[in-house]
Design a protein around this nucleic acid. Sequence first.
DNA 1: CGAGTGGTTGATCGGGCTCAATAGGAGTGG
DNA 2: CCACTCCTATTGAGCCCGATCAACCACTCG
Lengths: 260, 260
Amino acid sequence: MKMLDETRLSRTPPFCQLGMRQLREALDQAEMSCPTGGTVIFDEGQPARRFYLLLSGCIRFLRLTAEGNEVIVLHIPHGQMFGLGAAVGQLEHQATAVTADDCQILSWPNALWPEFTKLYEGFAAETFRTIGVRADEMSNRIVELSTKVVEQRIACALLRMIGQSGREVAGGVAIGFPITRQNVADMTGTTIYTVSRLLSVWERRGLVKSARCIIVVTDPKGLAMMSAGSADIDGADTSIPAGNRKPEPLSAGAVAHTAW
Amino acid sequence: MKMLDETRLSRTPPFCQLGMRQLREALDQAEMSCPTGGTVIFDEGQPARRFYLLLSGCIRFLRLTAEGNEVIVLHIPHGQMFGLGAAVGQLEHQATAVTADDCQILSWPNALWPEFTKLYEGFAAETFRTIGVRADEMSNRIVELSTKVVEQRIACALLRMIGQSGREVAGGVAIGFPITRQNVADMTGTTIYTVSRLLSVWERRGLVKSARCIIVVTDPKGLAMMSAGSADIDGADTSIPAGNRKPEPLSAGAVAHTAW
DNA sequence: CGAGTGGTTGATCGGGCTCAATAGGAGTGG
DNA sequence: CCACTCCTATTGAGCCCGATCAACCACTCG
């Protein structure tokens, strides 16, 4: 089993430049846990004492508002580090981390952070790269929330999730972890009702296929057009209102960023 | 003049642990520029070749959408580093940086990044801290955009700006750089019309005082209540619709975060 | 004084939130 | 195997916030 872990660890970017001895060393100092879906790893506001590596599964980062609304800020796909307060000098976790499904997690005390960055070639660079990518993602979310209508935001959210944690299945790409309509609503600043309605329409049009806690994107390109706003197949007859027929260019697509 | 610059540099966190010789050294390698308001420092998508320190003034980070919408992702107050692609391994700038007013900017080629982090005590830590704080801010923006109504979002935006770049003036705190209704709209995902209407109402109520490109917050506490939703002074008679009288707790206020 | 930029205000309309009611699993226990 | 419960999802009806369109005002600058 140890052997297995080392191989696996050696394949995650922050550790992939390490030799066998260093991998073992890192593993020896790590704590391993295998929480089932829905487990809270740490809470917003709680002191950040450890940093984490998600070996398998998916983590959701939540924020709760005073009014009781839940906002999903980020999803962490397997293979990535998280809880990186140590890297940016934050003494407290600033979101709640919850497992979206069954996970396998390694963690180390923050005291080891300086050592890891000093001793392990590529560790710091890769971890900071992760931070940069996440900032990008948040920046994109801000742009989406600011400029896109619900329909487009939901399309973006689905595309982002299959991009990060998609699993090929018969007839499409499934989101790789259980996800409810409520979850999608919490990622897009809308309501469960709107998400449900939209998914129903999309299913009729053959863009997605969904069941309880499962969403499969059957036509990613079609969804991408929705997300850009140049949506609504011409002549498509869709019970519901029929949406926003706007004559817009189909945008650059996936790319977009933060600058710092 | 050189002397002045050194003193000034020694007061910005990333450099404040440096000795005189190191400060001079850093300055010798820097390029200084003094762009007037509205100047583009770098563009989204452009290769990131330098990192920057804003000595005075204020920088706006913009993103443009395919549809021509402008979104203000962040404001960089004076004294902070920006354009930190080098720190997180990004080869391109991921937003456009524009001066909001007249600025004084130092910049260094990315090649010096590794040296700075190696040689200058506290430089890396402080810069990464900045990155963490900005991520927090973006996370907050996401929560606001997802859960708050326009009124609250605008209040949040004003409070954030006076927090970062407020200037005490007679009768209140002014936003420390020129700002149009359009700018506020671009920060909050709304329109110039709505911003204008709201500011008019707030001015009548004594919360703000505004003129062309100027906004002064005269009642920060009142605004904070607005931003939390527990707004609308009981019995306040306000021509316009009268807004959302919701019975909500007045939230934790300023605090909020990202976790990574 | 005309042009340009930024701001204000009214009228209208529709996207999407809200409320309400129902349906459809999945799991549990008898 | 069915009854029951809990959780998730669906769908209809109504309404309101805020976008949009349109017109006008105020100030600044050449």
